[in-house]
Design a binder for these strands. Structure first.
Lengths: 206, 206
DNA sequence: CAATACTGGATAGTTAGACTATCCATGTCA
DNA sequence: TGACATGGATAGTCTAACTATCCAGTATTG
């Protein structure tokens, strides 16, 4: 198919498709002449993936490019997560001390040596944010949250496909990013459900 | 204190403080003359909160304004969550059908009538995103994720302070937003921990 | 085979969001 | 008194993500 049809299939203006081509998010079509190209189903799928990443998953174009690159050139299983997380985690100021984050991680019985610095930075920022908002989480609460997320994470790690490096990379990298909005939506729905139970039934729709 | 000192306490340029004043995020200082004003500790705290919201919590200025307004003018406990979630959830296209989201919620044994439309929209988008990425979550996996988030949510709902409407509003609204980055960070750390366990020990730092 | 429409690629322009800089008529204080 | 700071208004900057225009080169149609 040609570009206008590709754009139509993906529900995007051709100008946007051209933009994604320029930005290297979408692979080139097969040139049939110096000024004409053909696109196929892989382009349609890629566009859908791009939209999912920059839409619900909230990734930037630059981050999406890194994610797609990591999938296309799969790293070894050993540092898959590191690369996935680094591709996705914004840079934190290197001077941000992560003492408290480390302390929390160790307190949970996890080994902070296994944790990427950028992820520890993210935890530190989250803790700082809560503090700025006047929240203090008890250790027990933090532990409950952490074990809840461990349930999710253990599940995900267990389900990493082992048949091919490509499949594993795709699973880990996309799973990292695409499951985030799912979890946040589930949390809110759970809050609404729990709230309805606590305030026994009648709540106005908000 | 005066503006330059306020800005210094918060670690921000005065131009930014002025901007937040203009945008209505920061309450006015007490005028001591037509062109001079005094600020106090509440302004410093407010600035810290604003930075936490627009920083780690990733909220926009407009969303931050809604959040602060909801805290300042606390709604009843009954529709607190609805307002908190609406203040925070981006608008979803109204025509987006949420059939599947409803079905998932009901399948979890929750009552979709207790769920805000915007939150169902968020769930639907998350599910669509996963599908676009070629993921299919089994019902069991979805259930495990949902119950993990219910652990978190039930905890939060149970801890809503009951002494004052202000305290409750602050807890719910800020908790909704500020805990999100915490959960995402914990999930990644849990993944790294689980991964290290699965691949028995030696993983390069990423 | 000429007229027309469309294509891919390059380049420039737009929009929105979040600041940032400049001005200026007061205040303040050494 | 006079240098400097302040609050408020206004305009400018910067980045990200598109969007519009242009143009030479096909494809297509009568």
């Amino acid at each position: 198919m040609r570009m206008s049809q590709l754009a139509q299939e993906a529900g995007l203006p051709t100008a946007t498709v051209k933009y994604y081509l320029r930005e290297g998010l979408l692979h080139e079509g097969r040139l049939t002449s110096p000024t004409q190209a053909h696109y196929d189903e892989t382009h349609v799928e890629r566009l859908r993936l791009i939209r999912a990443l920059v839409g619900p998953a909230g990734q930037s174009i630059a981050s999406t490019r890194r994610i797609l690159a990591a999938i296309a050139d799969p790293p070894s299983e050993l540092d898959l997560l590191g690369i996935a997380h680094d591709a996705v985690t914004p840079r934190y100021p290197a001077e941000l001390p992560t003492d408290r984050a480390r302390q929390v991680v160790e307190g949970l019985g996890w080994n902070s040596a296994h944790c990427a610095p950028s992820t520890l930075g993210a935890l530190q920022e989250a803790l700082d944010g809560l503090e700025a908002g006047g929240f203090e989480l008890s250790d027990e609460t933090l532990e409950r949250y952490a074990s809840a997320m461990m349930v999710v994470a253990a599940d995900e790690i267990a389900e990493i496909p082992t048949d091919s490096a490509e499949a594993a990379a795709r699973f880990v990298i996309l799973g990292t990013v695409l499951v985030e909005p799912l979890l946040l939506a589930l949390r809110r729905l759970a809050q609404q459900t729990a709230s309805a139970q606590r305030f026994s039934g009648s709540r106005q729709s908000g």
